[in-house]
Design a binder for these strands. Structure first.
Length: 415
RNA sequence: GUGGGCGUAGCUCAGCUGGUAGAGCUCCUGGUUGUGGUCCAGGCGGUCGGGGGUUCGAGUCCCCUCGCUCACCCCA
């Protein structure tokens, strides 16, 4: 390894070409979510550690081993945000948004941080676009939320998408089911993998995801949460499904769908793309009706999702991003004309043109080459006879007064 | 944290059984004493990831280490 400093593991520079593709994502999100009444919010990049410990759940991998936690100068424990829902809920409480018309619909596009081993589609600093709709338990809100994500993924051309859907019930149902599942797992403990056995207390639901053959056999006969939903929860789920059906969305009900954060209740969903590698989830979310209360606010329902920018782009057809337009490149035949060129380039920009000036001391030949590379439509060459304005496509050129360059280009632009 | 693969110029790569480094592309200059896209010539650019060992000699062999990458785990 060379002695040069590199970007830390799991981080990367967003270079100009990539930044242009991201701008497409941001524009699509702003358009689609804005049309549905969502307004942008941005929360701090770091928060009190306690927010995530309480909000995300102490037993989750995120809290147990993936947080970037540090002390600031006064000894406060802070953590780089590993996800977006808890911070937005914190902001909802802190700013008294329960006094606004409900639901409060918010979206964000921010970076998040998790200390994990990087691989394709998984970075230590990653970007997500996400929504949170807080203050209503209406199943229409769940369905609308899912449809919005589907629209965004569709607009971006994300390939080979699949939507999985389930319901976790209310916290009470979930707790009762959890006890039932734990009892079942304990009864078959000897056939379970060591890892799953060790998680019976902390996260029994995850047993459904195990690859271990003995565990899989046991899970074939395990009780399913979907079968234990109360009448209200079952009805809520049925209404979400009916609305999605009506919207023409294809999905698969997967009773084993488990999301890795503790705050989910009732509806949960995840979009995956088979065009991706092992990290196939492009976006997912669900309802978190108990979270606001958990964080010290009034009992308030909410639903939201997050989608990974890097993963959406990986799974999307490479969309050609248009080259930036350059109206004018100002070249000069000798250094004594540089000051005049500087002024013309500046004035051209004030007149609304995209204008660039030779800035590297190239030979005239090199300057024309540069103008060609950046796709300039006109080049103004300043010299003894005045300004030679050359139209690059045709190669035609005319000599004008230096003060007439901008007028000439402006006229040509409308042709 | 655990495995597999890979580390030679900015990029893509070559370098045979060890003899001390090359090509293409890019960039700059010149051919055209003031003019692009083609062509020709030249130039810039590498302690061959790092350290140690074997050897008269290591980019080539051995050991260690760091990094990148894919996967496990988990998620966006």
């Amino acid at each position: 390894m060379s002695a040069n400093v590199r970007a830390p593991r799991g981080t990367h520079d967003v270079l100009p070409d990539d930044a242009a593709r991201r701008a497409v994502v941001e524009d699509a999100a702003a358009r689609i979510l804005g049309a549905a009444g969502y307004r942008r919010i941005e929360t701090p990049a770091f928060e009190a550690t306690e927010l995530f410990a309480r909000g995300v759940g102490a037993s989750t991998d995120i809290v147990q081993k993936e947080m970037y936690t540090f002390e600031d100068g006064s000894g406060r424990s802070l953590t780089l945000r590993p996800e977006g829902t808890a911070p937005v809920c914190r902001a909802y409480i802190e700013h008294g948004m329960q006094k606004l018309p409900q639901p409060v619909k918010l979206w964000y596009l921010s970076s998040f941080f998790r200390y994990e081993r990087a691989q394709a589609g998984r970075q230590r600093q990653f970007w997500q676009v996400g929504t949170e709709a807080i203050g209503s338990a209406d199943p229409a809100l769940d369905a609308e939320s899912i449809v919005l994500l589907a629209d965004l993924l569709d607009a971006l051309g994300v390939r080979e998408l699949r939507l999985r859907l389930s319901s976790l019930g209310t916290p009470e149902t979930r707790a009762a089911y959890r006890a039932e599942l734990q009892a079942y797992l304990r009864a078959h403990a000897e056939r379970l993998s060591e890892e799953v056995r060790g998680r019976i207390d902390s996260n029994p639901l995850r047993a459904f995801d195990a690859d271990h053959s003995g565990t899989r056999e046991v899970m074939q006969g395990a009780p399913l949460l979907l079968d234990r939903l109360t009448g209200e929860d079952a009805e809520h789920f049925a209404q979400v499904r009916a609305l999605l059906d009506e919207a023409g969305l294809t999905y698969e009900v997967d009773p084993t769908l488990v999301r890795g954060l503790d705050y989910y209740a009732r509806t949960v969903f995840e979009f995956t793309s088979d065009a991706l590698g092992a990290q196939s989830g492009v976006g997912g979310g669900g309802r978190y009706d108990g979270l606001i209360e958990q964080l010290g606010g009034p009992a308030t329902p909410g639903v939201g999702w997050a989608a990974g920018i890097e993963r959406m782009l990986l799974a999307a057809d490479a969309q050609a991003v248009g080259e930036p337009v350059v109206d004018l490149f100002v070249a000069y035949a000798g250094a004594e004309h540089r000051a005049a060129g500087f002024q013309i380039a500046h004035e051209a920009r004030r007149a609304g043109l995209a204008a660039q000036l030779e800035l590297a001391g190239r030979s005239l030949k090199g300057q024309l080459k540069q103008a060609d590379r950046i796709g300039a439509r006109y080049v103004a060459i300043l010299g003894e006879e005045g300004a030679t304005v050359k139209e690059m496509d045709s190669g035609e050129q005319v000599v004008v007064e230096p003060g007439g360059v901008i007028h000439h280009v402006l006229r040509g632009r409308t042709l």
